[in-house]
């Protein structure tokens, strides 16, 4: 096994071990922190497909995170007030079922990614960054000015949603659910990186002309990647809303997009576990430094700068060396 594989296994062990310990020591807050890290990691895994493998620097991924969040918020708020979402032409009721909520979150964020992708993937470089940012802001302002679902104040949900056989209000059980999803998505992403699609997508990142010359359309590859990427980040958004039992336009803000990108940069762009390690470090810093000083973002900034300047492969690059070509 490669060093990176060992590092990945150790990462998962820590990520599962800390809340397990906290559960035994009766420290529910630590479990919640770990759950936050898992959900942020999932959001980052989504973006990493577009950013790391596809080379698409999207500054609008909070849109998908937030759409996933609002999918949860809207469905659950209608369920808790016993009012249908719509009555004409047919009745759609709210729901407290996590599975339904996840599916809706995935579908809604995938559709949003498709629309944004179609319109933005014709551009590249700095224009792509600006267009994704602009779409993200558009959806953010829309949420702020949409009074039906709380506008700027957001939406509160009293109870966590339901999953068969799981008491989702128990922090450890909800953590387990989120962790299982993250692991599943990581397995899928690992396969995807090594698949025909992964090979072609990363080739398109390295050399678009080459991909065209063998008869494949980089635009199509990127669009598919962007949709999958948005869907995964959307799923993370639904979980995040459920963790907090609250959703607000903050989830859609460009700062959120930036944070998701920061997880990836800290951990290692394009590395399978980059966003996982990055999200863990982020939560740790937020918690430890945030307790010491209000200005913890300054230290985060310094860390980020250090990584960008001295460790281009992020923490994984520094610890496990250059990425081996997938084979």
């Amino acid at each position: 096994m490669s060093r990176e594989t060992y590092l990945n296994i150790a990462t998962l062990a820590v990520l599962a071990g800390v809340p397990l310990w906290a559960w035994m020591a009766d420290e529910p807050f630590t479990i919640t922190l770990a759950t936050r890290a898992v959900i942020f990691a999932l959001a980052g895994v989504g973006l990493n497909l577009a950013l790391g493998l596809g080379g698409l620097v999207s500054l609008g991924h909070a849109a998908f995170f937030g759409i996933g969040g609002y999918a949860m918020g809207i469905l659950a708020s209608h369920a808790q007030s016993y009012t249908p979402l719509i009555e004409v032409p047919f009745v759609i009721e709210g729901t407290k079922s996590m599975i339904v909520i996840w599916l809706v979150a995935i579908l809604a964020s995938a559709l949003a990614a498709l629309a944004i992708g179609v319109l933005s993937l014709r551009t590249s470089g700095v224009y792509f960054i600006m267009i994704t940012l602009a779409f993200g802001q558009m959806i953010y302002y829309f949420a702020i000015s949409w009074p039906a679902y709380g506008g700027e104040d957001g939406l509160s949900i009293y109870l966590r949603n339901d999953f068969p056989g799981v008491n989702t209000l128990m922090p450890m059980q909800f953590f387990g659910l989120c962790f299982a999803i993250l692991c599943l998505v990581l397995v899928g992403m690992n396969l995807l990186q090594k698949s025909a699609f992964g090979l072609a997508l990363s080739a398109a990142r390295q050399n678009e002309t080459r991909v065209l010359s063998v008869g494949m359309e980089p635009y199509k590859l990127r669009l598919v990647a962007f949709v999958i990427s948005g869907a995964i980040t959307g799923l993370a958004g639904a979980l995040f809303a459920d963790l907090n039992r609250f959703v607000s336009p903050t989830m859609l803000s460009w700062q959120m997009s930036g944070e998701i990108m920061i997880f990836i940069i800290i951990g290692g762009v394009g590395r399978l576990f980059g966003p996982v390690i990055g999200a863990m470090i982020f939560i740790l810093l937020e918690h430890v430094l945030g307790g010491l000083s209000e200005f913890w973002h300054v230290y985060l900034g310094a860390l980020l700068l250090g990584i960008v300047l001295f460790a281009k492969g992020g923490v994984i690059g520094a610890l496990a060396g250059r990425e081996k070509a997938h084979d």
Binding site: S195, A196, G198, L199, G215, L221, D327
Partner: peptide, 23 residues
């Protein structure tokens, strides 16, 4: 080898296979 496989993939006509290891 991956570059050569990329070409063979182009010959096949599509890369929309997501879970089978291409190599």
């Amino acid at each position: 080898l991956q570059n050569a496989v990329l070409g063979a993939l182009g010959r096949r006509g599509h890369a929309m296979s997501f879970f089978k290891p291409v190599m």
